[in-house]
């Protein structure tokens, strides 16, 4: 299966185009890195690929068809700030099980303790919350994961723990992953190939290394 962006273009209101004529193909089982200056539209691109935002030009295709509008989303996005992506008035158990019911084995692989499930989000640290955000996005129906600076706020050990668990799962399930990150070393370590989103040279945006 492939997740494809075909000649997409986007801008907010009447602001200059963030990118135009940009294409990208992410294959199942592939781990692709996305680099670019701050403010060049990486997060916007991630949102478009996951269906949070509609592209203004071109189209997004999943397995040759447009992104489905109903049902479980096979393209899941994990954000940079876990504190901002969980409902502060829900218990962790409800947050975790909103989309699907992860089993204990998966929780253990991501180091989630059973007694965390009865806590409130403000009782856990950023690293602990992010594990929940990753697991809740990883239902068996998920085919592609978009990690938008997923571990930028976490310490090195937690970062390695989360990535090792994800990489292992990606191999088992043939997941495709887009890694949006500033961290050169992380991208070098986990990605099969890397593309650059370069807002200064719009022409080069269609170029894939």
């Amino acid at each position: 299966m492939q997740l494809e962006a075909k000649n997409i273009g986007f801008r907010y209101h009447q602001n200059p185009w963030l990118f135009r004529n940009f294409s990208l193909t992410l294959n199942s089982g592939e781990i692709l890195g996305l680099k670019g200056q701050s403010g060049c539209g990486k997060t916007t691109l991630a949102r478009i690929l996951a269906g949070y935002e509609k592209t203004l030009e071109g189209r997004i295709e999943l397995g040759g068809a447009p992104l489905p509008k109903v049902g479980y989303r096979a393209v899941q996005l994990v954000f940079q700030h876990p504190e901002k992506s969980v409902n502060p008035r829900w218990h962790m158990r409800d947050i975790l099980q909103e989309g699907w019911q992860p089993d204990d084995e998966l929780l253990a692989r991501f180091g989630i303790q059973q007694d965390w499930l009865s806590r409130w989000p403000n009782e856990l640290s950023g690293g602990e919350l992010q594990r929940f955000c990753v697991v809740r996005a990883l239902s068996p129906e998920t085919k592609f994961l978009i990690a938008d600076e997923m571990t930028a706020m976490l310490d090195a050990i937690t970062q390695a723990q989360i990535w090792q668990a994800i990489l292992e799962l990606a191999k088992e399930r043939d997941l495709g992953i887009l890694v949006v990150s500033h961290e050169k070393e992380l991208v070098k370590r986990v990605c099969d190939r890397v593309i650059e989103l370069d807002s200064v040279h719009l022409e080069r945006n269609s170029f894939i290394s």
Partner: peptide, 20 residues
């Protein structure tokens, strides 16, 4: 362990988490 877990080094984490 912190040094070993960096992506430019081993990228191997130790298990567990910091206590609350």
């Amino acid at each position: 362990a912190l040094w070993q877990s960096l992506p430019q080094n081993d990228f191997t984490p130790i298990p567990g988490f910091q206590p609350l």
